[in-house]
Write a protein that binds this DNA or RNA. Structure first.
Lengths: 157, 157
DNA sequence: TGATCGGAGATCATTATAGTCTCCGACCTG
DNA sequence: CAGGTCGGAGACTATAATGATCTCCGATCA
């Protein structure tokens, strides 16, 4: 349950790769194209292209056309959150259908719903979690931040 | 993104209702049947039946056949976690495909995967969150626990 | 000017989801 | 001891989301 899509997976991998090429020690400032990433991670080329286009449209990366073209990060890796990446590909975070329902499209259970409030709490927690992690945190070598919900603490299990 | 299924929604609503009927002030100890829940929350009867059967099979509720039959909680509401409920319906928590891949079905990206570890961290955090909330916490009136990831604290946003 | 890039749209196959239908067996209760 | 009321279980269908592919276009730079 709560699985993220393959596209989102690809987005994360690609961004990690772009960030590494751009800020890594080996060949810093390198522009990386779609084909390189697709081959590196065994991702279908054209599907990855779609994903990168979407990321570019959402201003997470910048595209450069023509030979020697490719993608670079639109801003520093520590300014790109996991939440931003995932939301670019999969749309806004929404545990339930009614998480962001517009006026006029209320769900059938709405008036009697007994789980809306607690679920929104859960959603907020996940949102905080995803917003607190950046692409930088995902870079290899960097020790990952320790994540623990305060709610989980002190719960005997 | 990260939406839970309608079935899982129904499961949460139903369990909340059963718990309320069982431990509420009005008519404690009441056994509630599928039809009552379906009508209360506008859930398709037969679909809800499936959901409740699954919950029974996973030992979250107990079924009683025959007239006056229905469902009761298998244990106290504070001993049933949101994680248990969701996993009963949607299967184990898995942010990525490779979260619990068995031997022999490795994903194509496996050997080169640069995002597996951080994603598993995210997954663990969500698991902790869902395990820390119980059906009891979802009961109406009860002030919901304050959930906040420690990682989110101290992050300017 | 042509090979190399990304941009964009339509299209298709597969799978997951949501919902339905049918038949069965267990249980009270009159 | 029968009939209505319950859950149990399986097959089945429709719709939507996903993953993936194909084709054509425009920009760029050597």
């Amino acid at each position: 349950m709560l699985k993220i899509s393959k596209k989102a997976d690809y987005a994360l991998m690609a961004l990690q790769h772009i960030a590494a090429a751009q800020f890594g020690d080996v060949t810093p400032g390198r522009v990386v194209n779609t084909k390189e990433i697709a081959e590196e991670y065994n991702i279908p080329l054209e599907l990855l292209a779609k994903v990168l286009q979407t990321l570019a449209k959402n201003a997470l990366i910048e595209s450069h056309n023509g030979p020697k073209g490719g993608y670079v990060l639109a801003r520093r890796a520590d300014k790109i959150t996991i939440a931003q990446i995932l939301e670019s590909i999969e749309g806004p975070l929404g545990i339930t259908d009614c998480s962001h329902e517009k006026d006029g499209e209320l769900c059938m259970q709405r008036d009697n719903c007994n789980i809306r409030t607690p679920l929104l709490k859960v959603q907020d927690s996940i949102a905080q979690l995803l917003n607190s992690m950046t692409l930088q945190d995902m870079m290899g070598g960097t020790p990952l931040i320790t994540i623990q919900s305060s709610a989980a603490q002190g719960v005997a299990r």
